[in-house]
């Protein structure tokens, strides 16, 4: 089996699959729930083979009802289970929104800590896959805004493998946002030890002139932008946020104190977004280190467009570099 090799070059889809398998092996209370996740292995095949290995009581093909999935997962958590729910696509999470925000998010608080709610909600999200309406969205801000939820997003296969296990081990509800355009590119997974804790932001590339931060699929765009900038003599430091609730401000502050310039990039629409929260907070806490206003590069405040327009809607390396040029112009 894969784990016999310490390091493997595999896609994130496979890495999350292996992480889920390890979690199922480690704790018999871990169960997977979702639409088509059993025999089919999920529409993205993230749970491929797990139903065959662990059976009906560990890997549940549920009825087609998102509120039902989340609501019953809450009841199962009360019974001592650790449900991992798959929402099939980002835009399909909203039928379950009430159970997530009014119930799951608040129940630890309502129970005054006498009961934990270790529920993970996996959400394949984001664009770049040319899909129809409701299949390319980035709705993370709704959940980052909801007290009681944790929210993370891996950007690499290694983080996919480790962070899904750390999310399942958490005693709090965790929204686990999987950048679906990063499911298939391969990367190294080191099965021996995780790189960092679940709620740690990491410097993905060091630089000295401008700091750029993002999460999920945006990280690879930022790395591309940094490589292009280097050719023109600009040194960009890239931070992979990894965690959106709580946000890990310290690595960003440390970087900004060095570079004096910050660009925040995200696929999500800008208004009241996580990127806006980062920009405001860094403005408050690093005012005297900043040489320029914090700039945001986001999806536009419009519905995600038809797929043939997604490359104009989604921030790419050029739009990131346009913002980099602007912060350098101050």
């Amino acid at each position: 089996m894969a784990q016999n090799d310490d390091i493997q070059n595999i896609p994130m889809a496979r890495a999350i699959n292996l992480g889920l398998r390890q979690a199922l092996l480690d704790n018999e209370k871990v169960i997977l729930m979702g639409e088509d996740i059993g025999t089919l292995g999920g529409v993205f095949r993230i749970t491929e083979g797990l139903h065959a290995e662990f059976g009906d009581k560990r890997v549940l093909d549920t009825p087609l009802a998102e509120s039902g999935i989340i609501g019953t997962a809450i009841g199962l958590a009360m019974r001592g289970y650790r449900p991992v729910c798959e929402i099939q696509f980002d835009g399909f999470i909203f039928p379950g929104f009430d159970q997530i925000t009014s119930q799951l998010a608040k129940l630890t608080n309502r129970y005054l800590g006498s009961q934990t709610f270790p529920v993970v909600i996996r959400v394949p999200y984001g664009g770049h896959i040319g899909a129809v309406e409701h299949h390319q969205e980035s709705p993370e801000a709704y959940f980052a805004h909801s007290a009681g939820l944790r929210l993370v997003s891996p950007s690499t296969p290694n983080d996919g493998y480790w962070m899904i296990q750390e999310a399942i081990a958490s005693n709090d509800p965790v929204m686990f946002f999987e950048p679906k355009s990063r499911y298939w590119p391969k990367g190294e997974v080191d099965f021996r030890v995780p790189v960092a804790g679940l709620h740690t932001s990491l410097v993905a590339r060091t630089g000295t002139d401008v700091t750029v931060v993002g999460h999920g699929a945006m990280v690879s765009v930022l790395m591309q932008a940094a490589a292009l900038a280097e050719e023109e003599g600009t040194s960009i430091e890239v931070i992979d946020l990894r965690t959106l609730s709580p946000l890990d401000y310290d690595p960003i502050l440390e970087s900004v104190r060095k570079t004096g310039r910050l660009v925040v990039a995200q696929e999500a629409p800008e208004n009241a977004s996580v990127g806006s929260q980062i920009a405001a907070t860094i403005g408050e806490r690093a005012f005297y280190s900043l040489e320029a206003p914090v700039l945001r590069v986001s999806g536009y405040d419009a519905p995600f467009p038809p797929a043939k327009l997604e490359s104009q809607y989604l921030p790419d390396a050029d739009r990131v570099l346009e913002a980099v040029d602007r912060v350098l112009s101050y």
Partner: peptide, 9 residues
Amino acid sequence: LHATGYAMG
């Protein structure tokens, strides 16, 4: 739904 999930458990 919480009750149904609990009963599933």
